[in-house]
Amino acid sequence: MKTKVLAIDDSRTIRNLLAATLEEAGFEYHCAVDGREGVDMYPDVDPDVVITDINMPNLDGFGVIEELRGTGINSKVPILVLTTESAPELKARARGAGATGWITKPFDDASLIFALKRVTGAAA
C-alpha cells in the first residue's frame, strides 16, 4: 500500500512542487491550503506522514503540530515542517512543539524523499 502524505502549504507553487515529487515517487498525497484545513482533513485522510509549512493563514505550522500532537488525534504521526531558513531556533521551536523533522526550502526531490524515508521508512 502506498504511503499517504498530507501536505499542508498555503503556497500553490509549493503544493504543486510537493505534489509533483510525491506523485512521481509513487506516494499517495493529499493537499491542504492552510493549517486549519490540514487539521480538519487529517482524520479523513489518515496519513502516514504530514508535511506542513510554518507560515500560513488561519492556523500556522506550529498550530498544526500542537493540534495533531495535543488532541490525541494521533500523537505519533511523523510531522515534517517545511522551512525556508536553516535557522536553528526555528527547528528547535518546531521540534519543541513535536515536529519529527524538517525539510528546508528549496528542496529537491532527493532531499524530500530522503526526509520521508527517515520518518516513515518508506521510499514510496
Partner: peptide, 10 residues
C-alpha cells in the same frame, strides 16, 4: 519519542 521519530525508520 515525542517527536514521532522511530529508530526503525532511521
Amino acid at each position: 519519542y515525542g517527536t514521532g521519530n522511530e529508530p526503525f525508520f532511521l
